[in-house]
């Protein structure tokens, strides 16, 4: 394993140099929360944050993006809009990185999404262990509080120093170019294990079963009274899915210029919680109630994604738990309750 140590003071000046030479997005204060945003100065970067309003996946699947540009005249033509500027994302938490792993499976698996692929390839990932989990997260119990090995660099806060784990050639290149490091020793690694164990204990919400068992619980839960109980309170506002790092749904629309000669096909985040999501051309809506939509969302997170892509559709970040103004969106509350009902 390529593991190094850098002092925090050195790290700050490394970041400053990185900012000067790269497009770099990091976690900044957005009172009373935090948000990923373009970094202009090293001191803006907050690596001990609890949560960001939107997950970093917004850089890989932006809220809206152009897919193709087309011209109808003089000659009909289309051009793909897929392109991406190289950039560095710094401060990604382990659970959000698990979400990126799922997005990779969705968008670069059997079908390739050229826009996603272009952005993904252009993105360097520098993650950090979560020192201060917020009260809504249940990542520890989902097994997502330790990062999957798809990062370029990974940081662990050891007090006055960061432990830096290199995960790829690109990460090694970044380390060599910008970081002042020494090799980590056995004692540093032991220290990392220790602090990681301490942080795991800080999570306040927890799933009452191993995450692999969620699909089994859901198999028995289709007719549970829970769906109706929660569903009737639903605002169909989509907040729970907009903030979710594993949500991948989008709507595709065409726009045409006033001259009717050229236009653009673009996509925009969509949500299975909107009442029009499952409406089809005949006017039929196959999930017309909050009850049906809420159940669908929680089956998707806890079962369908796993069956289709090999990863659970929830990484336990807790954003939906907090974002839902009527307190009905929490996957952990729902799964725990359903497991209890089954017993």
């Amino acid at each position: 394993m390529d593991v190094f140590i850098t002092s925090k003071a050195d790290f700050d000046s490394s970041i400053q140099r990185m900012i000067q030479q790269n497009e770099i997005y990091g976690v900044k204060r957005k009172t009373p929360s935090f948000a990923f945003d373009r970094l202009v100065a090293a001191e803006e970067l907050c690596l001990d944050y609890d949560i960001t309003v939107l997950p970093p996946t917004k850089y890989l699947l932006p809220p809206t993006e152009s897919l193709i540009k087309f011209k109808l005249a003089p000659e009909p033509s289309i051009r793909s809009s897929a392109e991406a500027q190289p950039c560095i994302l710094i401060g990604i938490h382990p659970d959000d990185l698990h979400a990126i792993k799922l997005l990779d499976a969705v968008f670069t698996g059997s079908l390739t999404d050229v826009n996603y692929l272009a952005r993904r390839r252009a993105t360097t990932i520098v993650g950090v262990d979560c020192v201060n989990p917020w009260p809504y997260s249940f990542a520890a119990s989902m097994g997502t509080a330790i990062p999957p090995r798809i990062f370029d660099l990974w940081l662990t806060d050891l007090g006055d120093e960061y432990l830096v784990e290199v995960g790829s050639a690109r990460g090694e290149d970044l380390r060599k170019r910008y970081l002042k490091t020494r090799r980590a020793r056995e004692v540093d690694l032991r220290q990392r294990n220790k602090v990681r164990q301490d942080w795991l204990k800080k999570y306040q919400l927890s799933l009452d079963m191993p995450p692999q068992e969620i699909p089994k619980v859901l198999d028995e839960a289709w007719h549970s009274p829970l769906w109706e109980e929660l569903g009737q309170k639903c605002l169909a506002c989509g907040s729970c899915t907009m903030v979710c790092p594993t949500c991948i749904c989008f709507d595709v629309r065409d726009g045409i210029e006033l001259n009717l000669k050229e236009g653009e096909r673009y996509r925009r985040w969509d949500s299975c919680m909107f009442d029009g999501f499952a409406k089809v051309a005949s006017g039929e809506n196959f999930r017309p109630t909050g009850t049906a939509r809420l159940r669908h969302r929680l089956y998707r997170k806890g079962k369908y994604m796993l069956e289709r892509y090999g990863e659970l559709g929830c990484v336990g970040c807790g954003r939906c738990v907090h974002a839902c103004l009527v307190d009905i969106a929490s996957p952990v509350a729902a799964y725990n309750r359903l497991a209890k009902e089954a017993r």
Partner: peptide, 18 residues
């Protein structure tokens, strides 16, 4: 026909209820 919340989230606002 989607509520304002959806776009409010898309632009990354902190919810005013917070």
């Amino acid at each position: 026909n989607d509520p304002v919340c959806a776009e409010c989230k898309m632009v990354g606002n902190v919810c005013v209820f917070d």
